[in-house]
Design a protein around this nucleic acid. Structure first.
Lengths: 156, 156
DNA sequence: TTTCCGCTGGGCAATCTGTTCAGCAAGATG
DNA sequence: CATCTTGCTGAACAGATTGCCCAGCGGAAA
């Protein structure tokens, strides 16, 4: 559940050089290979490290436009809306939230014009009452986790 | 810039079994090892595959609460606010957007009570006029990219 | 004191990687 | 039509890494 400094350094190393091997890590960290291996196993079975899936850049795939849509759902239609949104490839992420909207989703599109098509497809479903969209211009802090890992490692 | 079916299958395999090697991939895909290697190199230098960083689960680290905050910024304070937010470990992501808000950020916290502390720290900065927060309850579609990859691979 | 647990340092066979090579087919170019 | 370029194949090689095992050691808990 909680991680120590060594765990933190392992994650840090992996984040910086994902292709690094266990042996090389043990050299850099100054510990035995078995230790690194055991820590990694533990981190993975703990669920702290979910996996090492490839990070694919939607922009490089031809989807340079990102947007966030806040959706208002008709009462009782939640399950259907979820299924509908899950079937749209351009919906990269979906959350149900408290607050003024009911759901928040991340969308990508090939262009601003194409975003219209995506939104039409997203909201072209009966259970969705209203959608308000915010187009992403800049991304000053791309998805990150390292600072949090470092903080968690310090607090041991 | 664009990917074909083989590229798609490579990414798919990597997503499903991240620890798979180039040799095993070539066997599964029925192509030569050199081909897979060349494709992978190309995908990475293209930027389609950004990397293979470890996916760390904030919940397993002790931060089970996720929220999205929409921020309104005082004109001309954008740069300062960006720097301020980047210094908060619990800010996992930050975007500047069009629409009613000026920025949208993803936050995590140790609990709902702790979220108050995080928000106080986030908005306790001069350039931020207003913040409205939505707490995430469910996550019906966790961050995903595979459907988009498959679509991009088909369209070749 | 005794037990448990994690780390160390070592060794082993099996496997994979990085790299290079020549051959071949298809498509583009002149 | 001849030539070139590009991408894929199948193979080879040395070097490195992995998965797995073991015994010993020290600190912390019972």
């Amino acid at each position: 559940m909680s991680i120590d400094r060594l765990d933190g350094r392992i994650i840090l190393l992996l984040a910086r050089e994902p292709r690094i091997g266990v042996l090389e890590m043990s050299r850099r960290l100054g510990v035995a290979r078995g230790t690194v291996q055991a820590r990694l196993d533990r981190l993975q079975s703990n669920g702290v490290i979910r996996g090492f899936g490839p990070e694919v850049d939607p922009a490089a795939l031809g989807y340079p436009v990102t947007a966030f849509a806040t959706l208002q759902i008709r009462q009782g239609q939640g399950a259907d809306v979820r299924a509908h949104l899950a079937s749209v490839p351009e919906v990269l992420e979906l959350h149900t939230t408290t607050g003024s909207g009911d759901m928040l989703c991340r969308l990508v599109a090939r262009s601003n014009a194409d975003l219209q098509r995506v939104i039409d497809r997203v909201v072209g479903f009966d259970g969705i009452v209203r959608a308000s969209t915010a187009i992403v211009m800049e991304n000053p802090v791309p998805p990150r986790i390292i600072p949090l890992v470092e903080q968690a490692a310090e607090e041991t």
